[in-house]
Nucleic acid binder design. Structure first.
Lengths: 195, 195
DNA sequence: CATTTGAATATTGTAACATTAATCAAATAT
DNA sequence: ATATTTGATTAATGTTACAATATTCAAATG
């Protein structure tokens, strides 16, 4: 039997050492919840699947829209609806008109993943993008960075563009001369379908 | 000042006293698990639905409601930009068509406040409401309760309707025979404008 | 006989904890 | 000079602990 004596003179303070935030299974903050036992299997299956498919923020894109505005509502406030003059009850609304300014410069992208969840843009939502609009600091934009499409808030850092995720758990993307970077347009709105 | 002395001579051993096993929310054993933050909403919605199913025996197709993690797409965003020739790319999108089924039964309500913030419906959003649609358990509905309009998730408890807010800091609204209650329609979608 | 009261016990959300995993840079080995 | 080993450091993860709440019981009270 050999007794090895460790001198313990390696190591010491290592500034910046330690596991990096966001390096876990889900790449984001987690939370503890209590669930019924019978649902455990389903939930774990769900988590596995969504984890495997959570690759990038965007999965499906779409080109030019055929913009053909229709007048949809003449007067369809339900009978007996109190305070029809109330400003929170819309009587007429054309969604194309409301959400699209320049139809021939507008296209749509279906969102996948949670990177914009803090801006209330969720998985499955369709965002509306205006390609003609001049992007300003603070706008939510669609950009491609090194070949990947992403939707982020545009900001600036030392004269260079920088892309901020809405979800704080993701890190900002810095753009330098070695980064392929292209702005595709400004996100002007979002829609979501429940049923 | 009056000092009241309690004799504390009631109670004592009560054999068989105490809450009964299985009397909880789910009627079964529970377990604590850790889940990513972005999945919390889906999981809770799923649990609500299955719980309501237990109470009522109503069977819901999970695939169609909360338990729909796999609205997945076959590929990531292609290297160029999407071509209309791509089979998976929708070629036309009319927002009215996409979000509205029955135009003459549909109206809009602009949301004020944060009671639905967990469902990603925020202040200033416009929700789309179909009045002709039969509301099912789990649907988000517009209802009036004692004269006030509210948007909540419809559920059922002991054969009575119950309205669940998406935001946990609000309490469920129970409906009994003394409550004025009317269902105005089913919320089928929501839109939001950034610019 | 109905109501009040304190004891008893399950539920439930959250905090705390221990273990694991990832990361860094100095020390050591090749 | 370069690669590997090592201990320090810190986040992630699953589980347990805990405090607050809810429910139920039966004796005491009215």
């Amino acid at each position: 039997m050999k007794i090895v004596k460790h001198k313990n003179n390696r190591g010491g303070v290592r500034l910046g050492a330690g596991r990096k935030s966001g390096s876990g299974l889900y790449g984001e903050e987690t939370k503890v919840i209590r669930v019924p036992r019978s649902s455990l299997g389903d939930i774990k299956k769900y988590l596995n699947l969504s984890r495997m498919n959570n690759i990038d923020g965007i999965s499906l894109a779409y080109e030019e829209t055929a913009y053909n505005p229709l007048v949809l509502f003449e007067h369809k406030v339900p009978a007996g609806f109190p305070s029809p003059a109330d400003d929170h009850v819309e009587k007429r609304l054309d969604l194309n008109e409301y959400l699209i300014k320049k139809s021939d410069a507008t296209f749509f992208v279906k969102i996948k993943g949670d990177s914009m969840i803090d801006a209330s843009i969720n998985d499955g939502d369709i965002v509306i993008i205006d390609r003609s609009m001049q992007a300003k600091i603070g706008d939510i934009v669609l950009a491609s960075v090194d070949g990947n499409f992403t939707i982020k808030t545009l900001s600036k850092y030392k004269l260079r563009p920088r892309l901020l995720p809405a979800n704080e758990k993701y890190k900002p993307i810095e753009i330098d001369e070695n980064t392929q970077f292209e702005l595709w347009g400004v996100v002007t709105g979002a829609v979501r379908k429940f049923k």
